[in-house]
């Protein structure tokens, strides 16, 4: 009867987004008068698993099985569906990130559930079950009704506040019931950037556009990112030109992010760019053109030269931080 949450772990650790998922599921469980069970797949220490209890999980199903490290989508989906069946879950909640988007649709078919991806709030109604999501790349919202008995949701990042409780979770090891022949993904090589704030995790993001004029001018932005502990992003032409890496491209065709604070320097604010950043809580724009559309999307703005403003900003923030 419970609500099942699937959360991945990152080298044995959970992230804020895992706790957002559990908080959301707990609030949903309260509406449906049931409890939250979390499925964790991969090696995670009990101490870490217990943290999920603080956000409202009653039970944690722990699958400490290294075969899943290859992120084989078919195998993972089977494991989640088996957990949902064994729990009799009415709803399964995933993160709306790479892995959640990969697995949730498969699980919805296995469980004959109805799915809504990228939901941004608790359901307005649970009977009928109607949830809200963004459509047209953030240009509108839709309210969608799920007709199937089992609801499958992926939750948009940073759309739900963490809610701590004094709840404690029990941890059970769970046999996911996935045989070797289901796995068919082989990882040959993994390359990870280390030591950088991940764009999708960052609370603050500093972003640059064509206003930077070339690949050689980004030192000032790196320094600002450093003092803010911010992630770095850029507009599409910047990554297309190779001034910055593709992993920094945000927008409709790049990464979609929702930080607390987004700085756009030398970015005009094209609709496709805004599609990736319009869920940011606060947007600050610095552009030398007072007519640039970015100012329509921004909360705070400076009409000015980014090469002058950024170093001053860095100095100011250093001062308040010291």
């Amino acid at each position: 009867m419970s609500i099942l949450v699937y959360t991945e772990n990152w080298d044995g650790k959970f992230k804020k987004l895992s706790f957002e998922l559990v908080s959301y599921a707990k609030a949903l469980a309260n509406e449906l008068s049931t409890t939250v069970t979390v499925l964790s797949i991969g090696k995670v220490a009990d101490e870490e698993l217990k943290k999920l209890g603080n956000y409202g999980a009653s039970k944690i199903l722990n699958v400490a099985d290294a075969r899943f490290d290859s992120l084989d989508n078919k195998a993972l989906a089977l494991a989640v569906a088996n957990a949902a069946k064994s729990e009799g879950s009415k709803a399964v909640v995933f993160a709306h990130n790479n892995l959640g988007k990969a697995i949730a649709p498969r699980v919805s078919v296995k469980l004959k559930g109805g799915m809504v991806t990228g939901v941004t709030a608790l359901p307005e109604n649970v009977d009928p079950f109607v949830v809200k999501k963004k459509v047209f790349t953030g240009k509108a919202f839709a309210n969608i009704q799920i007709h199937a008995d089992i609801k499958i949701l992926t939750l948009a990042q940073n759309s739900f506040e963490l809610i701590e409780t004094d709840n404690k979770a029990v941890i059970e090891s769970f046999d996911a019931g996935v045989s070797d022949d289901v796995f068919s993904t082989t990882v040959n090589e993994t390359n990870k950037v280390t030591g950088k704030v991940l764009l999708t995790d960052a609370e603050i993001v500093v972003s640059g556009g064509r206003g930077f004029k070339g690949p050689e001018n980004w030192g000032i932005l790196e320094e600002l990112a450093d003092v803010l502990g911010a992630g770095m992003a850029c507009s599409r032409p910047v990554s297309d030109e190779g001034w910055r890496g593709h992993e920094e491209h945000v927008g409709q065709t790049g990464k979609i992010i929702a930080p607390n604070l987004y700085f756009a320097f030398g970015i005009s604010g094209a609709i496709q760019h805004l599609g990736g950043v319009n869920s940011s809580k606060i947007i600050v724009a610095v552009n030398k053109d007072a007519e640039a559309p970015i100012f329509e999307a921004a909360d705070y703005g400076i009409v000015g030269d980014l090469f002058k403003v950024i170093p001053q900003l860095t100095e100011e923030i250093k001062t308040i931080k010291s």
Binding site: F141, N143, Q145, H147, A148, E296, E316
Partner: peptide, 24 residues
């Protein structure tokens, strides 16, 4: 398994607060 009940446009945004270039 699902159907669209209705759509909404985001609420209009408050005007951008402008700060002078020399007043970071």
């Amino acid at each position: 398994k699902t159907s669209y009940v209705n759509f909404e446009l985001p609420p209009p945004k408050a005007a951008c607060k402008m700060v002078d270039e020399d007043n970071v």
